[in-house]
């Protein structure tokens, strides 16, 4: 086919080729950026390990780069803090997210759904600093009063606020998963005498399970990587967390607090990139697992 194009149109074809090349380049930019993030963060982070033993970084808990009796670069406390706050947030997000998604897709009247679905998307649009601010002026003080603490800026505060950040992802993707379950499944279940609730629990939810799991993984990824909310609302004590009512300092918050203050090119500066690299790897794994669930769900259908 291509060989039969007349000579007069060759110039035309050159333009066509050029355009395709430009567009392909745009397409491959994403791969380049992802690879670039990986390489640059690894490169900068690795430079920390000329001075800091890798083993100390990975296995110890104390992070105190400015200590007068020798800098300490243990990532343990902040990883524990990140997971404590994230798991707390998921403890709220999973039941609430499935509840809202199931209500929207199975029970809500069309008119209610038309209002609520955009409302959930609006929740996603609220900037994380505003959520953090709410944590300082409303949720934090409420937690302090409730538990009789002098200060409400705790891991629990972070967990509640991260729920706000993670819910839109959880709800909207879970709802998509529920709606993707064929209508026939539900009708068959109802025809066999099951009521709508039984149909939801025994037929629709199990069928949508891989998609819902993926939704929760992606929501968790959002919570792990969230910076401003936890930075503002969790108290930022750089110690190993002792529970939900203690102040914590996550990986993201540590980077945000310290990177602006350290001189470029020091071990401390590079160590923060190593923390960033670790964060990147964690979020990559979480996304990859979510992707795996999505592909599994698709194959099952």
């Amino acid at each position: 086919m291509r060989d039969s194009i007349p000579v007069t149109r060759r110039r035309f074809r050159a333009g066509e080729r050029l355009m395709e090349g430009v567009l392909a380049l745009c397409g491959y930019t994403s791969v380049l950026v992802l690879a670039g993030i990986f390489v640059l963060l690894l490169w900068q982070g690795a430079r920390a390990f000329r001075e800091v033993p890798l083993w100390e970084f990975l296995t110890t808990a104390r992070w105190d780069p400015t200590s007068p009796e020798g800098a300490r670069y243990g990532i343990g406390s902040m990883v524990a803090s990140t997971f404590l706050v994230t798991l707390g947030a998921m403890a709220f997000t999973v039941p609430l997210g499935i509840g809202v998604a199931a209500y929207l897709s199975e029970f809500a009247p069309a008119r209610v759904r038309e209002v609520l679905k955009p409302a959930v998307e609006m929740l996603a649009a609220i900037p994380s600093v505003v959520v953090g601010f709410i944590g300082i002026v409303v949720v934090g003080p409420a937690i302090a009063r409730l538990f009789g603490l002098p200060n409400g800026l705790t891991a629990l505060n972070g967990a509640v606020l991260l729920t706000v950040m993670a819910l839109p992802t959880a709800v909207s993707l879970s709802e998509d998963a529920l709606r993707a379950v064929p209508r026939d499944h539900r009708l068959a279940s109802l025809a066999l005498g099951a009521n709508p609730w039984e149909t939801l629990v025994k037929v629709t939810l199990p069928a949508a399970a891989p998609g819902i799991l993926a939704a929760m993984m992606l929501a968790m990824g959002r919570a792990i990587g969230e910076t401003m909310t936890v930075l503002m609302a969790t108290g930022n004590a750089p110690a190993f967390p002792s529970g939900f009512l203690s102040p914590v300092r996550t990986m993201t918050a540590t980077i945000a607090i310290e990177l602006g203050e350290v001189p470029h090119g020091t071990a401390h500066y590079f160590a923060l990139f190593a923390v960033g690299f670790a964060l990147f790897v964690i979020s990559f794994v979480v996304n990859w697992v979510a992707d795996w669930f999505i592909r599994r769900g698709r194959r099952a259908r």
Binding site: G27, V31, V33, I255, F273, V286, N287, A290, D291
Partner: peptide, 25 residues
């Protein structure tokens, strides 16, 4: 498929990691 995988992963990269990347690059 690599491009699509990269796009999906980029949308999950924490925003502070983009910040670090921006500082270096």
């Amino acid at each position: 498929r690599w491009i699509r995988l990269a796009i999906r992963n980029l949308s999950g990269v924490p925003s502070i990691v983009y910040g670090l990347f921006g500082v270096v690059l």
